[in-house]
Structure formats: structure tokens, C-alpha cells
Amino acid sequence: MPRNPFYDPTQPHHRPDGFRNPGSDEVVKSLAQVLRWRLDARRDGLPRPPSDPIPTARPDLTRLQAYAAAHAADPADHGPSITWVGHATVLAQLGGLSVLTDPIFSERASPLPGFGPKRHQAPGLAPHELPHVDLVLISHNHYDHLDDASVRALASQAGGAPLFVVPLGLKAWLAARGITRVAELDWWQSVDVGGGTEVVLLPAQHWSARGLNDRMLTLWGGYAVLAGDCHLFYPGDTGYSRDFARVREHFAPRQQQAAGGGFDMALIPIGAYAPRWFMSAQHVDVDEALKICADVGAKRMVGVHWGTFALSDEALDEPPRVLRALREERGLSEDQCWLMAIGETRLLPSRRAEPR
């Protein structure tokens, strides 16, 4: 019997012993490469401390917590918004739902207390300050994206657990923690989450592991959230690949101009990219993040996955500086390419289909 219980030989990303990236076999690094990276970083004193404070903002708790009731009373006057909680955790409120991406509220992204990457900046919202969360999207099982304490806290929220949407293999991990409201998807599969909103798991170029013996045993991916008032794209952690052009092609019939156009917002990682010889296959840099935004046909993007955990060799405040420079160099407006403060909420224009 294959070690991968989901194995489907017709799927190029499936293997009998796990999953793979069809476009690259260089994502997972050897122990020798990991040691070379860490020794080089230690020798060169990397990452250097940030030279500028990571921007923060006081969250608009009143608006966030009142969203569901306000949207139900008057959807036209209470459109979509996003709030950057920190790292890859974003609270998106759209289609009457509160959606949380890759929640981590813990002090460290690590399996061991007192060890591993420590938060440089507190979350923009504490778990008790969140509105009732309807939907949690988990992109993969790395500790900075799938945090045990955070998912347990969300599962025990007042009013009942959210629906957790996860890639193949993670339903069992959640079930072991008593979390059973789970939709488990393969790439391109979808789930109707109510209120006319659909969630689709999308391919990404990354990898998975939480220990020494489970590498590539669970799937990874990104998400499209398709609500009536907003189409949201989140790739999770990823290297740059042809997958993103395929995403645009896949959704083109539903994103014609008369139907409201392309994705209204893309939450794209811009940090954890250095050194490129080690990171390029698994984490995009800022230039590639802009390419992803263009490839999927998003109207605007916000840079996430920076400023919280020092996971690579660039300083925590380097990605936004690079993004500002590229934005200016390429004539992109601030409305097309957002940089947000941790805790900040920004409103999005509601998606409008042209009248027939």
C-alpha cells in the first residue's frame, strides 16, 4: 500500500510516497545545503536588524466585530476589507464572512517552547479581539503557517468552530486535536462555504514537513476565495512557476470584464527570499511577487509574509523598501500595490458585474 493514501497516478503532483512539485525537483534542500546556508549567514552576521520600525496600527475593532451583522443588514454599504494581522495571517471580510489565512498568534514559529524563530512584532489582533471567524485557510503545514495553539483557540471560539479548509493530508492532523469541521482539498478542488462563496485550492511550488519523517507527505497550495463582492487570491508560500498563468486561465470564464474582472485583491508574500540560491525555488522575491500579481490578473496586491519572523537572510524591513522602489520604477500606483501596517484595515471596492 502506498505511503500516500491519496495517491492518484493520473495526478502529476502525486507520488506513492507523498507529493511533489511537477515544475521543479529543487525545492527541498539537502542537509548539506541547509548547513551551508546557516554557516554563511552566521559568518556574515545575517540577518541584520531592521533599520526602520515595522509599522503598526491600532485595529478598528468596532468595525471588524460588527461586520457580519452590518453586512447582513446592508451588503451594499458594508463591502469587503482586509486586515493584516502579521506575517501571512490576514483577516479578510467578504461576502458576509470573516476569513483568516494561515493564523499564527504564538510567540514562536517552532515545535519547541523557547526555541525557533521568535516574533519581532506582536499580532495586530489578539485571538480574543477577532470577530467570529467563519473560515480558516491553511496553505501548508510549516510552523509559521500551521500553528497548533492558534488553530485550537480558533476551534474553541464562542459560537462554534470555523470551517478549516486544508490541503490533502491535514484533516487527520486537525482531527487528532479534536477539530472536525474540516474540508480537505486537492489542487483545483473546491468547496462551497455558504452565502454564494466558493473556495478553491490552487497549485503552488513549495513543500511540507513538521518533523524528520514526514517530508512531502501532506500537500501545500494557495487559495482563491470567490465571493459575490470580492475575488481574493492567496498563493501561500511559493516559488515562482507557471502555475500562476494557469490560475488566470482557469478563472478567465468567471472573471470576464462584464462579470467584474480579475481578482480584486492578491495577498502575496514578499519576504523570506534570501539567499536566492537557497530560497528561490520555495519563496518568491519582491520582483517575482509582482510577476505573480500580473500573471493571475489581480487588480491590486498587498505584500505579506514580512516584518514578523526572521526566517531568512534579508532584514525584516528590506522587502517593503524593495517593493516601494520597484513600484516607483515601474510606474505602479499605491492603490495597485499596497504596503500595510500590522493591525491596519483597508477597505476594498465591492466587485460589480456590469448590468446585462
Rank of each mutant, 00 (worst) to 15 (best):
E344Y: 03
R276T: 07
P123I: 07
E249Q: 15
H250V: 09
N4I: 14
F105N: 04
G96N: 03
A259P: 02
F115C: 07
A68L: 07
P53Q: 13
V302Q: 00
T218W: 04
P22T: 08
D186N: 15
E249T: 14
A109T: 02
Q65G: 10
A76I: 06
F164E: 03
V28I: 11
M265A: 12
L316Q: 03
R152W: 02
A266T: 08
R327L: 07
V85Q: 07
A172S: 11
H140R: 05
I138H: 03
L316V: 01
S150W: 08
F164K: 05
L232G: 01
G159E: 00
F105M: 14
S139C: 08
V182S: 02
L323T: 01
L61W: 11
A57P: 08
P167E: 04
P5F: 10
N141Y: 13
G297T: 08
H128L: 11
P131G: 09
L163N: 04
E314W: 09
P53C: 08
P12F: 05
W220A: 03
R177H: 13
L125P: 11
V199G: 05
G160Q: 07
V199R: 03
A57F: 02
Q282R: 14
G79D: 03
D52Q: 13
V34D: 10
D186F: 07
H142M: 13
A258G: 09
F244E: 01
A149H: 11
I104F: 10
D40P: 00
S98W: 00
M279K: 15
H128N: 12
E249G: 09
A183L: 05
L170Q: 15
T197M: 08
L64G: 03
A315N: 02
P127W: 10
